[in-house]
């Protein structure tokens, strides 16, 4: 019976720890609008999620890279030195974690993760949809759901 109690307690503790970890991260990332509105805590490391603005990616020396994230309303500049995930590209949904620099408009990222969408299709179909979009028809944008 003691053994049973220990197992139940062990599972409870494990679940509790995980839930505590999840509580911190329940909101996995903030949007640029929330950053601009000052909703994100300053100081500790935070995560910002958004789409990489087309044409904003600048490669510096070595692995240095800077780009701008947008959620459609506001933007946040990100600077990062490190290996980017394979899915990183302009227009792609990205979650960057790091520290906000003073002023709050720029994130010094320690990690950049790509967030892909829930659409799966062959390249030809994607091209056809892109053509249709440019022809004036609306298709859902690729990238992160905000």
């Amino acid at each position: 019976m003691l053994f049973v109690g220990m197992i139940v307690a062990g599972v409870a503790v494990a679940a509790g720890l995980v839930i505590a970890a999840m509580g911190e991260n329940m909101l996995y990332f903030y949007s640029p609008s929330q950053i601009r509105a000052g909703e994100a805590p300053s100081g500790p490391s935070i995560r910002v999620g958004g789409l990489v603005v087309e044409g904003s990616v600048r490669r510096g020396e070595g692995l240095e890279v800077s780009f701008t994230l947008t959620d459609g309303a506001e933007t946040v500049d990100v600077r990062y030195a490190g290996i980017l995930p394979d899915l990183f590209r302009e227009g792609q949904g990205i979650v960057a974690s790091g520290v906000l620099e003073a002023g709050g408009g720029r994130l010094r990222a320690e990690e950049v993760l790509a967030k892909h969408d829930e659409n799966y299709m062959p390249p030809e179909v994607a091209e056809a949809m892109e053509m249709a979009r440019q022809g004036g028809k609306m298709v859902p944008p690729h990238g992160a759901r905000q």
Binding site: I7, L84, P85
Partner: peptide
Amino acid sequence: PMWGTYWVWDARLTSELILLFLYFG
């Protein structure tokens, strides 16, 4: 390869891990 990390503590991954613990329980 896609996200750039093996693991993150986001709600989906964490709750699935809890499911594994529930099975173990």
